[in-house]
């Protein structure tokens, strides 16, 4: 086995140190390395050394593709990427960059539609025979009441209103007119 920089550190520990330095380690590994670094200066210095490199590496961003590439004759005829994305491009980005969020949003919309359809369906109530008979009785009673009221109204209209209030004054008026004509 190739000797490591610090011969008193095992390869497994070096692997853990690297994982911790590059932020790949789980909580357990972190704890192991931190505890070990408290008692061992070589582990501590290794960890620091790897951390410095990791910090530098993590500051590197992707190289920016120069625009002049798109002006080259080889790809001049191909569609060029837009500076401001179109709706479809934005939609693609949203779905592909955040697939879980998009799937969740779609699922929520579908569930809402299903729930609306289910809860807004007309309720089919089934009535018992007793309830139907009772309703029938109540309907008949209500209709009877309405019939009685209509009959009474008809009688009142015929006997009191038409006779006393309309026919009688007209009759009197005509008699007066007749009397006046006879006198002349």
């Amino acid at each position: 086995m190739k000797p490591t920089k610090s011969s008193d550190i095992s390869n497994k520990m070096i692997e853990k140190i690297i994982s911790v330095a590059y932020n790949d380690a789980n909580v357990f590994e972190r704890a192991v390395v931190y505890l070990a670094s408290l008692n061992n200066n070589r582990i501590k210095s290794e960890l620091e050394s790897y951390r410095r490199t990791a910090r530098l590496v993590h500051t590197f961003s992707e190289e920016v593709c120069p625009d002049k590439i798109f002006a080259n004759s080889k790809i001049n005829n191909l569609p060029k990427p837009e500076i401001r994305g179109s709706f479809i491009t934005d939609l693609f980005s949203l779905v592909l960059n955040k697939p879980i969020a998009s799937a969740f949003a779609s699922l929520t919309v579908v569930l809402l539609i299903i729930a609306t359809v289910i809860f807004n369906r007309p309720v089919e109530r089934r009535f018992t025979d007793h309830e139907i008979q009772l309703a029938d009785k109540q309907t008949k009673y209500a209709l009877q009441l309405i019939g009685n009221i209509m009959n009474e109204t008809q009688q009142t209209l015929k006997n009191e209103i038409l006779t006393d209030r309309i026919a009688k004054p007209i009759h009197e008026g005509i008699e007066i007119v007749n009397t006046l004509l006879k006198e002349k």
Binding site: E62, C65, P79, E82, I88, S93, L96
Partner: peptide, 24 residues
Amino acid sequence: MLKQERYRFLIQQYKNKIYSYSRY
């Protein structure tokens, strides 16, 4: 039309990754 949009999207999304990887 959709082909062009797909292409534009892919280029927009990955041009820096392609270039960066090639540079290194």
